[in-house]
């Protein structure tokens, strides 16, 4: 029985894969960035499929909004007008073979080790409940996980300082 969500998953997976390939093979950097945005939104929809609405919001707003704009800026500010995608064939073939090696091995590996249990992957219609639980329990979880949120904050601070440092250094 083909269910809606299965169908949606397949469509979405194809969307992700093709837009991911588009990231690689788009002619211009900005097209590539646009493809990346599509990929990110697709991944966000995968989150939606497993009832992680909150992560969907995070993915779309932070990744699709913030990071994508930064990457677009980077692409626009650093690319020449005649900067088009090109690759030499032998190099690409070698890389492709290496990646294929990994892909095949991991495929075998996963097929051996992941349990195949159907129907368990998502639970229906308790997103709201889960979210509330998430918010009330995140602090307890945080106690168990150590210092996740301060770590994130520190990481942001470090990144901010680093980028400011880089930007200022160039002005000399």
């Amino acid at each position: 029985m083909v269910e809606f969500f299965d169908f949606f998953f397949v469509i979405n997976a194809l969307f992700i894969v093709f837009s991911g390939l588009g990231v690689l093979f788009a002619k211009r950097v900005m097209q590539s960035a646009l493809s990346l945005i599509f990929t990110l939104v697709g991944v966000a929809n995968v989150f939606l499929l497993v009832n992680s609405e909150y992560l969907w919001v995070i993915q779309v707003s932070v990744y699709g909004g913030g990071i994508a704009v930064l990457l677009l800026f980077a692409g626009r500010l650093t690319s020449n007008e005649e900067d088009h995608f090109s690759f030499d064939r032998s190099d690409f073939l070698i890389s492709f073979l290496f990646v294929l090696l990994i892909l095949a091995n991991l495929f075998v590996f996963i097929s051996k080790s992941i349990p195949s249990q159907r129907g368990n992957i998502y639970t229906t219609d308790n997103g709201q409940l889960l979210l509330r639980q998430f918010f009330t329990n995140i602090w307890q979880a945080n106690q168990g996980l150590g210092v996740i949120l301060p770590f994130i904050a520190l990481m942001f601070l470090a990144a901010l300082l680093a980028s400011v440092k880089l930007a200022i250094k160039e002005d000399e």
Partner: peptide, 29 residues
């Protein structure tokens, strides 16, 4: 139950920081 979400959020934050630093590095490069 929530480990995966928290880790995903950490990864997203990491990516954001990385993009910020990356922009600065690219421009100076």
């Amino acid at each position: 139950q929530y480990m995966g979400w928290v880790f995903a959020m950490v990864v997203i934050a990491l990516a954001a920081a990385e993009a910020a630093v990356g922009l600065a590095i690219f421009i100076s490069l």
